[in-house]
Each structure stands twice: as C-alpha cells, then as structure tokens.
Design a binder for these strands. Structure first.
Lengths: 196, 196, 196, 196
DNA sequence: GGGTAACCGAGACGGTACGTCAAGTCTTATT
DNA sequence: AATAAGACTTGACGTACCGTCTCGGTTACCC
C-alpha cells in the first residue's frame, strides 16, 4: 500500500521554527524592508540555503508565520458584551491605540508591505482580521444581525467588515491617528447612527 | 528685499521632469521594489547626485510625481448624474476594472508599497482618492447629503469615503476581484440599502 | 584463519566504476574546476557519501582514474622505428597536435590543475608520460643509448625525458603552440644536433 | 588637441595597490585555491565590486602582480661568473632549495594553478623565468654560446631554457626533490657532459 | 570680465544583500 | 554495513544597488 517514496533525512522542524521565530522578531524590530534573508538565517543559526529550500521569498516566510499565529495572535479580538455598538467602539479604540504606538504602526506597515509582494499575506491578513474566525469583526457583526435597524438579517457583514478594516488600513498608511470622532463615525458606517 | 544671495545656476527643471517621468514609467513597468535610483538616473540621463540633491528617497520621488498628477491623473473621478447610488456603482465598477488589469493591480500595489515607507505618499493617496477635490468620493457624497435616508445632513462623508477606499485597498492587497455583488454591498454600506 | 568477519555488503565495484567513469567524462567536458563532486555523484547515480567514503578529494578520483588508464590511455606512446630522432619528432608532433585542439589543451590543463593539489596525480602524470612503461619517452631513449653521439651509454635518460615533458608542460601553460622549429630544437636538446 | 574623454573620478591607485598586495600575501599564505576574492577584498579594505570592476578573475590579479614584480621578484637570477656549468649548477641548487621549503613549493604550485586558468600568468611565468631579461636562463646561455662544445653558436638557447624550467615545474608538480644528481643531469642536458 | 559658487553628467568608491553553487557532514530508509 | 537520497551548515561566487565622494565642465551672479 502506502506508495511510500523517498529515503533520506526529513525536514528539520527545529530549523523551521527557528526561522519563523527569527523572522517575526526581526520584522518587529526593523521593519519589512531592512528585513534581510541573511539576517534571518544568521539569527536563526541556519544556512541561507535552508531558507531558500523551503520558501520562495521573505514575504512567504511572513505569510507562514501569520498562518501559524505567530503575528497578531490575539490582541485584536472583537469583544462580545451583547452591545455591538459598544463592542465595536472598544475594539476600534484598542486597534487605534496599537496603531498609535511606534511598534504597532511599524508592524502594521510592515505587514502591508509584505502583503504588497505576496498574495498569501494579503489574503491571510484579510482573513485574520476581517474574516470569519472567532473574534473577527465579521463574526461579531453576524451575531448582531437584527439587533440594530441598520443591521437587518441579510446585511452584507463581510463587506462591512472589509470596509472597516480597510479604513484602518488607510489610516495606517496615511499616519492619521484614529480619534474618538473617527471611531464614532466608523461605528455609524457599520451599524448606523446611534439611536437618539 | 530678496534676502536671497547665492550664485550659480538654478535647479534644472528639465532634469526634474526627466527624473519624475522616468520614475513613473519604471514604477509602472517594474513595480516599486525593483525601482532603483540608479535605474531612474540612467533612464533620465542624469547623474545620481542630481537625484540625491533634491530627494531623500525613491518614495519621495513617487510622492512628488503623485502630487504633480503624473500618476492616477484622472481616470478615477466619480461621475455625478444626480443619482448617487448609480454614480457610486459606476465608479466602483471602473475602479474594479482597473484593479483587474495586471498593470492596474501592479500599480495599486506599488503605490501601497510606496506609502508604506513614506507618509506623504500615504497622505496624498488618501487625499487624491478619498479627499476633497472635484471628482473625489467625499465631494460626491457631500453633494448627495439628504437625498438618501441613510445619508442625512451631517453624515460622516469623509469617514464613509475612507471606508470605501480602504475596502478597495484591501481587495487589491488580497487580490480579491471586485464583483457585482461586492459593489452592491459597498454601495449599501455607503448610502444604505436600495429602496425596495 | 580467515580472520575476516564483518557483515553487510562489500564495496560496490559497479559504483566505483560508475564514479570513475563519470569523473573522467565530466573532466573532459567541463574542466577540473567546474568538476563537482555532486555532479559526479548524480551522473554516476550514486550518493555523495559513497564518494566521500572512498576518496578524500576530487583530485584523488582523478588520480585513480589516471592509474586505471582511463585517461591518456594510449595516444601518447612514443613510436619505435629504430630511428630515435625521427621517432621523437613524430611523437612531439602528435603531442603538439593534441595540445592544439581545444579538448586536448583543456584536458592538459585540467590534469595540471589536478596535479596542483594532489601529489599522486603529479607523480602519475610524470610516470605515465616521462616514466618507464612501454611507450614512455624514457624507455625509448634507453633503447637508443649508444646510437647517437650525444646519447652515450650512461646518459641521464630520465632527466632528459623530464626536461622534454617539462617543456611541453610549459608550452601548455603558456599556450604557446609547438611549431616545427620548436620540435627540432627539442629533439636537439634530447639527442644532440642532427649529424651533418 | 588630446581628444580627452570622460569626466568623473579616476581609478584609485591606492585601492589597486592594496588589492595586489593583499592578493600576493594571501596567495603565499593559503595557496591559490583557498584564495578568495572576498578575502582579498576584505583584507585590502575594499569593496568586492572594485575588484570585479578592474579584473576578470582572481588569476588576472595574480597575473598583474606577477607583471609588477610583486612575486618572484629577484631571487631567481642566474649568476654569471664566467663558468656556465658552475652558474647553472648554483642556480638549480638555489631553485631546488626554494622548492624544498613548504612556502616555496606551495607558491610554485599556486602559480602553476593560476597559469592553469589564465593564459597571461602562464605567459609571464615563462617570460620571467625562462625569458630574456637580465638574470634569465636564456640570457645566461646566450652569453655562454661557443664556450662549450655542446653549446655552439646557433644552439637553441630558448628551447633549452624552456626544457630546464619545465623540468623544474614537473618536479614541483610531482613533489620530487631536486638532488645533486638531478642537478648534474640537468646541467648535462643543457650544456653537455662535463669535460672529463 | 575674472572669481566663485552651485549646478550638472558621469562614475569610482566601500558596503550590504541578493540568489546560486558546491563543499563536506549527517540522517533516514532500503537492500 | 554499505548504499541512494537528500537535508544540513558553511563559505564563496558574481551581480545589483545603496549612498557618498570626486572629477571636469557649465552657468549665473557679484565684485
């Protein structure tokens, strides 16, 4: 049975982990450009060839790290207190604060830069934040369908999430801080104006 | 008066134009990374020092070209037929089509990458598209205030525009094409559900 | 008795032959540098370790191939018509022609390069050509002792051969072709000026 | 007049010297293979590109150093006491001693290796030693024409020199030391047997 | 109208990183 | 135990650009 196949040593999991780890650390420290394959290799204690054997580019490494949850793991979950409006506000506040910090801003732009030359990174970035996992905006909005006049059953929650996240992205790119007015406005865009 | 002083020749406008021109062309041809100062200099028939004398980085060149209207000049104007819903739909369709073409997609990502390491580019990108000039989304929405139930006077048109443009950016990054359903959904996000 | 012992398969003669064969072919095709152990292994259908187990370096492989007569096998035999002068002339002519051809020249330099980092190759090169086998210069000169005034019994035939071969070597290194004058001169060096 | 030509900075003589110097030192220390362009660059305090800009290969650097007299400068001059036989013997003795020392042997083989992949090195090696400058074998033999029965006017001194030097090369390649018998034999090859 | 200062093109320089090749060692499964 | 396969670290290759720095030549203003 088992078609079997080849002999020889098997891919080293230790090397793989060390590479992802080193990449994530250096991404945070120095930003996406200035992130060098040689640097990752040397920090991970690994030969360059081992990186090139398994990944096509540095953006592919970032994509995999993202997939493994080594970046943006959990900080960005949307809370669920039953009150969508308040939850969205709190989440936007949290995200806005992260974007205000130098590291947060830098990380955000690094991820965007990575997405720029790797479709997977863009895809995953969108999935992780706007997507459908627990804690994602889309999920939270789905739960709130029907509870607000502007959010009737059938409302396009995915697209609303996308618009919300897109707005944050644009803020990050233009270095415009997210103040309370902007947050209120975005909540309005998502779920309609506050009742009275 | 003329506090000035200084002798010597004045900045060569011809060189400046040649540099911007070369940068714009090569940006379109080869993408933001792979855009090299040396390449721009040689294509423009200019010494490297002439570039470094006047710009701090290649992203600054792109920023200036953007400001001069040498990129994204006019294609992206929002029409005004009196019917916001129809106008937005048409505009999103047009933008979506641009993003579908290889050059359009590449240019979009190149600009995002440029924005990634230059605040001005991000700022101008936001202004040009979402901003307040004639043909910008925000302007069109302002004109429509009051004409739709979801767009009462005082609605946060700037933030709505931002969300719309952000959604497009996110699509560009994740290489998700903009189909008719998505367009309809985005219009709903912006100006509310179609009346019956 | 049969001290022996040891289980497991024994050195594979097939592998050994395949390796030597592959090495000789690739030496001729691509030259000594550009001759890679990995290339030999893959052409021979053999694991790298099998090569490293039995040889210390690629020059050792060449040395062994040389010993096996897989290189320079026979082309370079000195004829024996009874007339040393004529025989030497013919042989030098033949060698000179080989050195003129691209493959011949390349092979010669490859062997010199191999000799450069392996004493055995140097030794064998000297033995094979200048040495004492049948067809070697030294042997031919020994047979001619006494037949020429400059070649009395007791003449240092080994050293004369060495000088002759060395001259060829120097020609190969300096890419100086061996013309008829040079051949005549070398014959004079070896066996004295033509009578008359 | 003077057609002139281009502007711009001029080749740095300091860099050129540093590179040749570093190359010569490392050649002596580590041998021709193991001589790395990167090593030369770093020892010379120079960018790699500066080397590649002016030389095609490491053997070309060695060729130039040889031409500049930075290698084999003077040690190998043939003395001239009036007695060819004695002079050649002394010179062969000196060369033989150099070849016996580890550095000398290694240097000799390094030069041969360099000649192996660069025609100029081979050419210059031949010229410097066998050639026609003062102190060269050929020159010495020319001076001795007529003074020995085996060295009549018109004897092919260039070819004799070549044979002598070639014999030394062959000794170097095969790691055969040059003993007194061999020296005597070579002198015999060159100028005939000792008179009684 | 001679000085002098800033411009311009060209491009050499010391560097960093790229992506590739091969070396020699080690590991696995197979024979 | 020897093999074919091939992953591993290391180190060098030759190339592309970086940003800085000369060069020689050319304006334009200022005495």
């Amino acid at each position: 049975m088992a078609a079997s196949s080849r002999s020889g040593p098997v891919r080293s999991e230790a090397a793989r982990q060390a590479i992802l780890q080193a990449a994530v650390e250096m991404l945070a420290e120095r930003g996406y450009d200035h992130l060098a394959i040689e640097g990752i290799a040397s920090r991970a204690g690994v030969g360059k060839q081992t990186i090139y054997r398994w990944w096509k580019s540095k953006s592919a490494i970032i994509a995999e790290a993202l997939l493994e949850g080594m970046i943006l793991a959990e900080r960005l979950e949307v809370p669920d207190t039953g009150d969508v409006r308040r939850d969205l506000t709190a989440w936007l506040r949290a995200v806005g604060d992260v974007l205000l910090s130098p590291q947060g801003e830098s990380l955000a732009r690094s991820l965007i830069a990575a997405a720029t030359d790797n479709a997977d990174v863009g895809q995953r970035l969108r999935d992780v934040i706007a997507g459908s996992g627990s804690g994602a905006v889309s999920t939270r909005l789905t739960a709130a369908l029907g509870s607000e006049p502007h959010l009737p059953p059938g409302a396009p929650v995915d697209d609303i999430s996308e618009a919300l996240v897109g707005a944050l992205l644009l803020r990050a790119l233009s270095r415009t801080p997210l103040d309370d007015d902007a947050i209120a406005a975005l909540v309005t865009v998502a779920v309609g104006p506050p009742s009275l």
